[in-house]
């Protein structure tokens, strides 16, 4: 049978020559679009080096790993590490804390940038708007180490501004950062302060895309500013909110590990120790790399399940999805 490849390439190729046609199409495509692939190359290399190559090392989660024997030389032990983890109270506490902090963040931190963007949109004084935006964006650009330093200082029992004010009001001073019940509010609150402004940019961009005639039409129809915000702005940026929500759910179990590491201490492990800090302590400080890899794999699988479920749910409910 003679093989024919038309301009459309693969689609018109006979079934028997499908593979060859596809290869030819690819060669032609690369020749034509090589500049795009050159531009993509750094990103692809980064992904391969830092995200795909380490996956090879994931096998130590199923091995009795020793740095002297190496990955290849270490014997397979099946799911033993997972069984150990599931029998470890500290791991369960870390899983519980991860989910509690993640869901509290989702409940309290996720809506703040949306509210901020809606509020910025209502400010019509240009200079005031720019000043307000700059002030709330700034904390994002400060290193997390400095942020942690500021927070530790603010809540210090002797010199902290919070305790000083409480002292002036005649209240008893509290050492917030060693009390487990205060760890989550301080962590989530300071995270909101740091990131909410910057995260509002994406919603502001979405609001900027709403046609001004929708507002004009609503004004003629009799809508107040409040009604316009509820009935036009918010529904118009809803697809963006959904996409951001899915991305957020995907990163749910990744609850700002460095920041927690900088803020927590053994006294607050009870409420502050999360899977990633647990992995850090097990893997790097305790040199149990195989156990840490198992915990990390568990973390990644949970994240994958969450983001897939959120995407499917969103596609069904709101007709908006990430993929």
């Amino acid at each position: 049978m003679t093989e024919t490849v038309s301009q459309q390439g693969v689609r018109d190729a006979p079934t028997t020559g499908k593979f060859e046609a596809r290869v030819r199409w690819l060669v032609r495509h690369f020749r034509k679009e090589w500049q795009i692939y050159v531009l993509m190359a750094p990103m692809i290399i980064w992904f391969l080096l830092f995200l795909y190559k380490p996956m090879y090392g994931l096998q130590i989660a199923f091995k009795d790993f020793s740095i002297f024997r190496g990955i290849e030389g270490s014997p397979w032990i099946g799911l033993e590490h997972f069984q150990t983890l599931l029998g470890n109270d500290q791991f369960f506490r870390a899983v519980g804390n991860t989910f509690i902090i993640a869901f509290l963040s989702l409940a309290f931190a996720f809506p703040v940038p949306i509210i901020l963007a809606l509020m910025f949109n209502e400010i019509h004084h240009r200079i005031f708007k720019k000043m307000a935006q700059t002030i709330v964006y700034l904390p994002h650009f400060i290193s997390v180490v400095i942020i942690a330093g500021i927070v530790i200082n603010m809540f210090s029992p002797s010199t902290g501004v919070v305790n000083n004010v409480m002292g002036m009001l005649g209240l008893e001073q509290v050492y917030f950062l060693v009390q487990p019940e205060w760890f989550r509010p301080i962590f989530i609150g300071s995270n909101i302060w740091k990131e909410a402004g910057f995260e509002s940019i994406i919603y502001l961009a979405a609001i900027a895309g709403v046609s001004p005639t929708l507002y004009e039409s609503a004004r003629v129809d009799g809508a107040t500013r409040w009604q316009m915000m509820w009935r036009i702005t918010l529904p118009s940026i809803f697809p963006t909110i959904v996409i951001m929500f899915i991305i957020r759910v995907g990163n749910l179990v990744d609850v700002g590990f460095e920041y927690i590491l900088l803020l927590y201490q053994p006294a607050t492990y009870q409420t502050g120790d999360v899977i990633n800090t647990f992995i850090y302590r097990q893997g790097l400080q305790g040199a149990q790399y195989d156990m840490a890899a198992a915990a990390g794999l568990f973390n990644a699988v949970v994240a994958l399940v969450l983001v897939t479920a959120a995407n499917a749910l969103s596609r069904r409910v709101s007709r908006t999805s990430l993929w």
Binding site: S211, T213, S217, V220, D221, G222, P235, S236, F238
Partner: peptide
């Protein structure tokens, strides 16, 4: 007088329909 109190209705060039309704 605010637009809503003028008792006028306007049809826009780009229709200005609310996409979510």
């Amino acid at each position: 007088v605010a637009p809503k109190d003028r008792d006028v209705a306007m049809v826009f060039q780009n229709y200005a329909l609310y996409p979510h309704l």
